[in-house]
């Protein structure tokens, strides 16, 4: 009784990844279509801009941490991920979770206004002025804009995210061949999907691994810079998971 398409193993994997992606994304896919998010008003933007740097960093660290927690849940639901050693699960998440968060951002990016959903409303890069890292914010918005223009489906984003996590090239893996096998299945599923939907052109337009890695490094550098300027704040007030991954 199952349609032909779903009986092919890579189609089954794609379906499974899509379900995991949908279950762990915020905003949910159904809220994306015809969204009615308001844009922050001038007064609201000024209020954010007037926040002390340490407070704004803490606020953003909390939002990033919530997103990371959803990515951890996504990973746990990926077929085969939990069968890896816990050592390797942690290596992959440490290296890839932030990349997935960054890619997921494009779902809630409004290209017309160059704004991203933040704390319930649409925010432009200027809202984050008090963070004191304009280049990082600009790079993140550039990435979101570029990805948004690709108009990726949820299936594409789910598989892209899975491939960012299940990356046998990450240093310190204990069982690299095992990760490579899982990566191979995901890679095939992605290519089959792209062929079926005539979206093979997408591959050449995706951000390079180097670009995502550079963006994550930029984030780490800014965390270090913030710690030098505001010693003790990260230890005292940032979410433990954020500290574990980035500090």
């Amino acid at each position: 009784a199952c349609p032909q398409a779903l009986r092919v193993p890579s189609e089954l994997l794609t379906q499974s990844v899509l379900l995991s992606h949908r279950a762990t994304c915020h905003p949910r896919a159904e809220d994306l279509q015809g969204h009615r998010w308001a844009t922050f008003s001038r007064e609201e933007i000024c209020a954010y801009q007037s926040q002390p740097t340490a407070e704004m960093w803490q606020r953003c660290a909390r939002r990033v941490t919530e997103a990371i927690e959803r990515v951890v849940e996504f990973a746990k639901r990926l077929r085969g991920f939990l069968e890896l050693s816990q050592h390797d699960q942690i290596v992959l998440l440490k290296a890839g979770a932030m990349e997935v968060v960054l890619v997921r951002m494009c779902r809630a990016f409004d290209a017309a206004t160059r704004t991203v959903l933040f704390e319930g409303k649409l925010a432009g890069p200027e809202l984050f002025r008090s963070l004191g890292c304009p280049e990082l914010v600009a790079s993140i918005f550039d990435l979101a804009q570029g990805l948004s223009a690709l108009r990726c489906s949820e299936s594409e984003l789910g598989l892209l995210s899975a491939l960012l996590l299940v990356n046998a090239g990450r240093p310190w893996l204990q069982d690299r061949p095992r990760v490579a096998r899982l990566q191979g299945h995901l890679d095939v599923a992605f290519r089959v999907l792209l062929r079926r939907t005539r979206r093979e052109g997408l591959l050449a337009r995706l951000p390079s691994p180097g670009r995502l890695r550079a963006l994550c490094s930029q984030h780490l550098e800014q965390v270090q810079a913030f710690r030098r300027l505001h010693p003790g704040v990260v230890s005292a007030a940032f979410p433990p998971l954020y500290r574990e991954l980035f500090a």
Partner: peptide
């Protein structure tokens, strides 16, 4: 060293 990640990965519920 990665106490929180360990905990999240071991935690059974969604």
């Amino acid at each position: 060293k990665h106490r929180i990640l360990h905990k999240l990965l071991q935690n059974g519920n969604s």
